[in-house]
């Protein structure tokens, strides 16, 4: 029945045809309610991941396949971006340092900036765009085409097979991507330093590693673990909870990118605060 006995639109039909109805006929939950509901569902989703990831059986085949997709296939894009970032940051920083007569500090300053902040965040954003949207769209389409339901019916645990493998792959691959991106960006910075100056490779490496400390590298790698986890988790959550058919798939992919990018920045902020509290700056 479209209209129930009390004269109101049936709840089921209201949700399904919400977009076609005028605002006066629909009663959307408040933004705060939506926010808390979403956060609660995401937390439950993360808890389920943690629980299922520790329980055998483990599907290593799928994990490797997802690792290949998330890590190896993102390498080209990440490497090009990292190289450009290294080059651009160096070129942009040079005039300011020249103004202060501190041009010799360029390798040191750029290396710290790249390793601590720029490369991890940019890599995470690229992965949020490429991997997060991919996972969201893939799982979303599986959801709307009821493939996930079919897996459940066939006795396979879809969560373990689809979600655990993807989140774990993203969590493990992002730090490795960032390490490689760090190396590539430092290479780009070396070229950037030598565009308008002359610094030998030996001197450049010495200056970079004289400046870098464990407190620069280790927190950035740990941060990337959380970035990877957040990207995988949000991509899977948005895809796994997709509704509204094919339209929902696009929305899931879009939401996965937007939310995971936002979460990357929030995690970065928290990481900066924690490293500051632990006196690791």
């Amino acid at each position: 029945m479209l209209i129930n006995k009390t004269g109101e639109i049936n709840h089921m039909y209201r949700e399904r045809y919400r977009l076609l109805l005028p605002n006066t006929m629909t009663k959307r939950p408040s933004i705060f309610k939506q926010w808390f509901e979403e956060t609660g569902n995401l937390s439950a989703f993360a808890g389920r991941y943690l629980r299922d990831s520790l329980r055998p059986p483990y599907d290593f085949g799928e994990l490797l396949r997802q690792a290949f997709e998330v890590g190896y296939r993102s390498l080209g894009l990440v490497a090009i971006t990292a190289f450009i970032m290294g080059l651009v940051i160096t070129i942009q920083s040079r005039p300011t340092l020249v103004e202060f007569g501190a041009e010799s500090w360029l390798p040191a300053m750029v290396s710290v900036s790249l390793v601590r902040e720029i490369v991890p965040v940019v890599t995470a954003l690229i992965c949020a765009g490429r991997v997060g949207s991919g996972i969201g769209a893939e799982l979303g389409s599986m959801k709307v085409t009821e493939q996930i339901d079919a897996m459940e019916v066939s006795g396979t645990n879809p969560f373990k097979y689809l979600v655990v493998s993807r989140i774990t792959a993203a969590t493990l691959m992002l730090p490795i991507l960032v390490v490689i991106a760090d190396a590539v960006s430092l290479w780009g910075a070396y070229i950037g330093v030598n565009i308008k100056g002359v610094v030998s490779y030996d001197l450049y490496v010495r200056q970079v590693f004289d400046t870098l400390e464990y407190s620069d590298v280790v927190p950035s790698i740990i941060k990337c673990v959380f970035f990877g986890f957040a990207i995988g988790l949000i991509g899977c959550f948005k895809g796994y909870t997709t509704t509204k058919g094919t339209e929902g798939v696009g929305m899931a992919a879009n939401a996965a990118v937007v939310v995971s990018s936002l979460v990357v920045f929030i995690i970065d902020l928290l990481a900066a605060q924690i490293t500051d509290l632990l006196n690791l700056n």
Partner: peptide
């Protein structure tokens, strides 16, 4: 994938050793 992971870990180890 193995090459990718090994390369990443090797770079990380090399960086940590040099520091």
């Amino acid at each position: 994938l193995g090459l990718f992971v090994t390369g990443g870990i090797f770079l990380l180890m090399a960086a940590l050793y040099m520091i």
